[in-house]
Every structure is written in structure tokens, then in C-alpha cells.
Amino acid sequence: MPVQRISGAQLGQTEAELEDEAHRGILTTTLGKAVAWARKNSMWPATFGLACCAIEMMAAGAADYDLSRWGMEIFRASPRQADLMIVAGRVSQKMGPVLRTIFDQMPEPKWVISMGVCASTGGMFNNYGLIQGVDTIVPVDMYVPGCPPRPEMLMYGILRLHAKVQREARFK
């Protein structure tokens, strides 16, 4: 069916008129859902590779796995332009304040993925040097296990986060 020219949005009153609107290519929704849909479909991650998990994160962004399928291929160097922080790798005690500063610089709304066991729990590095779980510093939305997680696992975590972002619209 060819797209008709729309002269102003006209919401139908009766069932038949609504049906007619749908045929003209108009979809009704709530504003919150539309905003959440926009957010989840262009989520820009901040570049925050800390260790070997970053290699898998880069692989996820590169051609083979291709995060751009979900509009995420642009890893921003500036936290001001990012709304997702993928903490990829172990966080040292000295890096903790830096991590928090970068998180604070990201504009709302923002989400955090803790990638790999080191970021999530300290992993095998149960020692003085590393923070035992990045959730002591920043609020984490999604934990991705693995050492390091394969790109598929990171992508699965990202998709679960997308579903969470879409679901958040119901509560706002």
C-alpha cells in the first residue's frame, strides 16, 4: 500500500476510523514508550576498556559481531555523549574514583553494564589491588559473567538491557 500524504494527525473516533488511520501508517502509543524505544535503539557506549574484556568488547563492535545492528557502534570517547558505560575489565583501587568521575559526567539517563567477573566481583583477583565488584562504586544495571565473556554474551547482556530500558517506560 503506498504511503499517503498525511495532513495533520487525526485520531479516529470510531473503530472504523482507527482502522483507517492504521492503514495510513500511523501507530498510536504512549510518549514514554516512544522515548524508551528511541533510547534503546541508539544507545551510545562510553569507551571504557580496562583489561582483556575490552578486546571482546571491541570484537563485539567490529564487523564480525557488529553492534551497529542495534545502533551501538559509536563508542564515544567523551562521557558527555554516552549513555551506556560498559565496564570491561578489572577496576583497580586507584581507578575507582576515575570510573566514578566518568560515570558522573555522563548525562542522564545512563546505564552501566558490568562486563566479566572481575568487574562484577573482583574475579580471581582477590587481593588488595582491585575493587571487589564495581557495584560498590557505580550502580550496575546488567552483569555479564565470563572471563572474558564472548561477544555473544555481551550482546545478550546488551539486549537484556534494551528490554529493561523498554520496560522502564511502564513505570514512568
Binding site: 575507582g96 574514583p97 587481593n127 588488595y128 560498590t136 562504586i137
Partner: peptide, 15 residues
């Protein structure tokens, strides 16, 4: 073994 997270002088307990 691991130590507790200390951030800007404050102690942050695990979750």
C-alpha cells in the same frame, strides 16, 4: 584476600 572498597576516604560496604 580482597579489601573493602574505599572511595574518597569513605568506606563502601559490599552490596
Amino acid at each position: 584476600g580482597g579489601v573493602n572498597t574505599r572511595y574518597k576516604g569513605a568506606f563502601i560496604p559490599p552490596p
